[in-house]
Amino acid sequence: MHLETLAHGHSLFHRLDPRGKLAVALAFSLVVATGHSPWAAGVGLGLCLVGCLAGRLPLREVAKRLVAVNAFTALLWLVLPWQLGLGGGWLGLSLKHHPQGLMLAGMITLKANAIVLGLMVLLATSSVNQIFHALAHWRVSPRLLQVFFFFYRYLHVLHREWHRMHLAARARGFQPRTSLHTYRTYAYLTGGLLVRSYDRAQRVYQAMLCRGFRGTYWLLDHFHWQRRDGFFLIWGGLMVALLLILELAA
């Protein structure tokens, strides 16, 4: 399982300090998500597209992720422009076209794409570990961070365990079908995974105790704030301010 395909690269965005990128990403997402102006969202999307090209992100992977997002927004386009009314028509129900819904679906699509693309440019260009460290430097609650980190660390291990169990089932001729046997087998696999992860959690905790753990999860510095990070922070701030002006002008 490899989830950090965009984190490899040498573009400007890959080299920037994740602390600065995190701050800009947060401000950008907040402004875009809460805004009402299609202009602001559109310009936001445009900025992210430029960033995407400047960061030389693999476009195929970016497109794949955007397709996943837009599978959801497509549902909105199907549902939002219609209003269900009572009386008349088929079965006493009538469908009315609702142009405002169309606007709304468009707005949500624009915002969702801008934010997801923005996060790909700004956050996915760092590894999850770097983001984790950056969050710690921004003094996010250590407990929350530990949960986040343990989740990510053991996601890989559990995924491997799931894969192994699945292989073991297949090696004995298991083929998923629409049958009670299949449902039962998946229930066993899921149950097995739960039990195993509980045991694993216990062993990890024991291993931590063996090395003197008393509640502090240590982090070591390895970020170096450079001049380009300062520039980027100012530039990012200006772009977010531009979006805000567009928003207020509307």
Partner: peptide, 15 residues
């Protein structure tokens, strides 16, 4: 269980 190898190895001594 730490993000990097160095952090994992330093975990005990820090404790």
């Amino acid at each position: 269980f730490c993000p990097t190898v160095l952090e994992d190895v330093a975990f005990g001594p820090l404790n």
